[in-house]
């Protein structure tokens, strides 16, 4: 019933799932606030990989006219790349804001451990 060939053939997606879960794990389980956001970045990059993978076409080439154009060239779908460029910007701004908050938290509380922060609150 289960098509193993299909599952193994899409190892990109397996990597995406594993990386996503690693990132989520770090965000939820890790106590250190910086580590949490490292986890977020891992999670985000895995999602980007997901988008890029699905935009890719077998035998396709980058959607750049340098290849000479023509109708026989198969381009990969450019839209996911565009979306991801936006998402990367979003991710970096979130991270930057988070890290600046983390610095503030460390200045105020002297710790970055979420358990201790809950006690101090």
């Amino acid at each position: 019933m289960v098509n193993f060939g299909f599952l193994l053939g899409h190892y990109n997606y397996w990597a995406v799932v594993v990386l996503f879960l690693i990132g989520l794990y770090a965000m939820i389980v890790k106590k250190n606030l910086i580590k949490k956001f490292m986890g977020l970045n891992i999670m985000d990059t895995s999602i980007f990989l997901f988008y890029i993978s699905m935009g890719d076409v077998e035998g396709g080439v980058s959607p750049i006219i340098a290849h000479g154009g023509g109708s026989d060239v198969i381009y990969v779908n450019p839209l996911p790349s565009v979306l991801i460029l936006t998402a990367i910007v979003v991710a970096i701004s979130t991270t930057a804001l988070a890290l600046s908050l983390i610095i503030k938290i460390y200045e105020e509380y002297g710790t970055l451990d979420s358990d201790r922060l809950v006690e101090l609150m």
Binding site: M27, L33, F37, T94, L97, A98, L101, L117
Partner: peptide
């Protein structure tokens, strides 16, 4: 700041 961090963390997820 801590509240904002908490918000940000869940919001980012």
């Amino acid at each position: 700041i801590l509240a904002s961090y908490k918000y940000l963390l869940l919001g980012a997820i």
